[in-house]
């Protein structure tokens, strides 16, 4: 059984602490793939407000994580996604994939980010310096990136 940790939270996360937790007691890990997403500034953006669908979000995150574990033979993985108001420069999402080898660790990290972006029910609303707000539109390139993996099932 792979070690899977899924969390949706308002608070910041500590990637070093999460990596230690993922690896605790494991002796078969040769590498950990890691991705941290941040609120990217520009165009007068001040913050993002992240909304989600409680219940379905966790279900989808777990499906994505378990699918990655099976497909890439991971020892374990961690997905933490923040919600609420996050200012420019703040971390939003953490993905960690522990594997015997580099290929699986890095491939699984990309796989999980692609599926998270297109199938986990989160929505971002941008907040600008002039007080205006706008919902972020989906990007076709994210759908294309996900399509290369076929279906979510392993």
């Amino acid at each position: 059984m792979s070690r899977v940790t899924i969390r949706v939270q308002a608070e910041a996360f500590d990637s070093a602490h999460e990596t230690t937790a993922l690896l605790a007691g494991q002796t078969e890990v040769g590498g950990v793939g890691a991705f941290t997403g941040f609120v990217r500034g520009g165009g007068g953006l001040v913050a993002l407000e992240l909304e989600h669908y409680p219940g379905m979000t966790e279900t989808m995150m777990r499906q994505i994580a378990e699918s990655a574990c099976t497909r890439f033979g991971l020892v374990g993985c961690t997905i933490i996604h923040r919600v609420g108001r996050l200012a420019v420069g703040m971390p939003i999402v953490l993905v960690l994939c522990a594997s015997a080898h580099r290929g699986g660790a890095l491939g699984a990290t990309e796989f999980m980010m692609d599926w998270l972006k297109t199938h986990a029910p989160f929505w971002k609303r941008e907040e600008f310096a002039d007080g205006s707000t706008a919902w972020v539109a989906p990007r076709a390139c994210d759908d294309a990136a996900t399509a290369r993996w076929g279906t979510l099932g392993a």
């Binding site: 998270l116 986990a120 989160f122 989906p138």
Partner: peptide
Amino acid sequence: AFFPPVTGG
């Protein structure tokens, strides 16, 4: 549930 295409990550 009805919603727009998701934009997380």
